[in-house]
Nucleic acid binder design. Structure first.
Lengths: 112, 112
DNA sequence: TATTTTCAGGACAATAATTGTCCAAATTTA
DNA sequence: TAAATTTGGACAATTATTGTCCTGAAAATA
């Protein structure tokens, strides 16, 4: 897992590796070429529905592509803070706690 | 740091610990009592401007309160995914990379 | 118990953020 | 040079978020 690339950079390299124009990939995704261009440049976010399509197209694991997308989202959300590592650590524990809670009980109530 | 509490639960306990009605704290925050109630119940998000006010009011560290708020946000964003730990780990590396990059260069370009 | 205070939660409007398109200009490729 | 591709701004549409108001329930207090 290369952590030095954003989702956009990543899929751009994949696309260029196959010598595909934006136009064609965008058509597979059923979006405007301009939108895909923006996604590749990080000016728009990809959405989850695009993951399986791109994964199939480029022959990579859906799971990994999703990982790159979501880690980008998380990074983007807190990059402006000072104590990013602490935030992530506490978030991890919170998630563990909540998932565990969820096994025993029913729903999730989490919004902040 | 108690990771078993959301931001809302946390400030609710603080508030109740001082026997303050929602109304009064809400007034300090300059918001409707109903809004604070929702924040405490996790139906609304707190915003950053509230942090210093609440920290002062309850005599706690701004930094810690911010930590609770942001870790909540991160947790909430990815709680629905399977591989949350991996996501956090990759996000951490990405942030390190970006921060380091930022020291050398200028701005941030990150949005996904 | 009656009154008052507090709190919960739905409905709503206002605002903000996100998403995607269209188009024209710039760049790249053939 | 001509054609194809890509960039990026302006824009509209959609969606998400924020906070208020209000009513009724619950809790506290007299």
């Amino acid at each position: 897992m290369n952590t030095k690339q954003s989702f956009g950079e990543y899929i751009r390299k994949l696309r260029e590796g196959q010598n595909l124009p934006i136009r064609k990939v965008a058509s597979k995704l059923d979006i405007d070429p301009s939108t895909l261009g923006k996604i590749e440049r990080g000016e728009r976010s990809a959405n989850k529905e695009m993951i399986p399509i791109l994964a199939t197209l480029f022959g990579i694991e859906e799971k990994n592509l999703g990982l790159i997308l979501f880690s980008d989202k998380v990074a983007y959300q807190i990059i402006g803070e000072e104590n990013t590592n602490e935030i992530l650590k506490v978030a991890e524990k919170k998630i563990q706690y909540l998932k565990n809670l969820n096994l025993k009980q029913g729903k999730i109530n989490f919004k902040n």
